[in-house]
């Protein structure tokens, strides 16, 4: 995030600790950085442009990546629609059981996603308490459809949006909303002209994380809906059938596509620093 330049010269070293602490911290940190970077570099270097192009031409792979992106987009939209209001309520009101709701929101982050998939199957499956009636009365099936994929993605990724929205709203001084009301704005107008402009970056960060988590979700999706295959499922399937060499190219392709999308979203959220802003 853009910041106003500080007058104080910035030191490489935090003044509260001696140099040795910094050296040790850097060495340990560098090991972790290498641990994260090496596999990604490895994946990138094993592939040539041609193998990547070949993978990109495979209809299965293209379809799977498109399906992943589409499902994740729907999941992020649903998270925005239902999660942002929940974030607002959690930020602005005090009620008994608020901590419980906060904890419930976070559970999908802690539960193994195979477990999440099985739990979802029980509710949204053919004989599930929602899955059955939805099929019968609405013709909406959660097995073998993108609807199921979205359900699985949303379950594991919604917490990011709710939590980020909550933090964003909490950072807006409620007194500003009150002042807005006294200036003649109704509650909705005050929200749109004061609260939302001051919290949308945080909300967008949450939606980005939800989107990212949705694209990368494997276990819950594979348990609830095997077909049609999202990109992670497709890559796993190719790995099982043809081995590492065949799976690596589409894996790199998915990596590149998602990285490009995040670069775009980040540029959108943080790209244009408004004049003089300091937060």
């Amino acid at each position: 995030m853009w910041r106003e330049k500080s007058n104080r010269p910035r030191s490489w070293i935090a003044p509260s600790f001696p140099l040795t602490v910094h050296v040790v911290s850097w060495v340990l940190g560098a090991i972790l950085l290498a641990f994260v970077a090496l596999p990604l570099i490895g994946l990138a270097t094993t592939q040539s442009k041609t193998t990547l192009a070949e993978a990109a031409m495979m209809p299965d792979v293209r379809g799977a990546i498109a399906l992943s992106l589409e499902g994740a987009l729907l999941s992020a939209l649903l998270a925005a629609m239902f999660g942002v209001p929940l974030g607002y309520v959690l930020a602005r009101s005090a009620f008994p059981g608020k901590n419980l709701i906060g904890a419930l929101i976070d559970i999908p982050l802690a539960v193994p996603h195979t477990v999440a998939g099985i739990a979802l199957l029980i509710v949204f499956g053919r004989r599930g308490i929602l899955g059955g009636p939805a099929d019968q009365f609405l013709g909406l099936r959660f097995w073998g459809t993108i609807a199921g994929i979205v359900v699985a993605m949303l379950f594991v990724s919604a917490p990011y949006t709710v939590n980020a929205a909550r933090l964003g709203f909490e950072a807006v001084d409620p007194r500003l909303e009150k002042v807005a009301r006294t200036l003649g704005m109704g509650p909705w107008r005050a929200f749109l002209r004061v609260t939302l402009p001051l919290s949308w970056r945080s909300i967008l960060t949450g939606l980005t994380l939800t989107y990212a988590r949705s694209v990368s979700e494997f276990a819950a999706v594979v348990v609830l809906v095997y077909y049609p295959m999202t990109a992670p499922v497709q890559i796993y399937e190719m790995f099982l059938r043809y081995g590492l060499d065949q799976a690596a190219a589409p894996a790199l392709l998915l990596l590149l596509v998602t990285l490009a999308l995040f670069a775009l979203l980040r540029a959108f959220a943080y790209g244009r620093p408004p004049r003089g802003e300091q937060r």
Binding site: D173, L176, V179, T182, M185, G186, R279
Partner: peptide, 20 residues
């Protein structure tokens, strides 16, 4: 009446200007 119809000018701590 709700606040927006009361015609009060409200000045809060640190003056409450909208930072954006």
């Amino acid at each position: 009446l709700p606040p927006e119809h009361r015609r009060v000018g409200f000045v809060v701590q640190s003056f409450g200007l909208f930072p954006h």
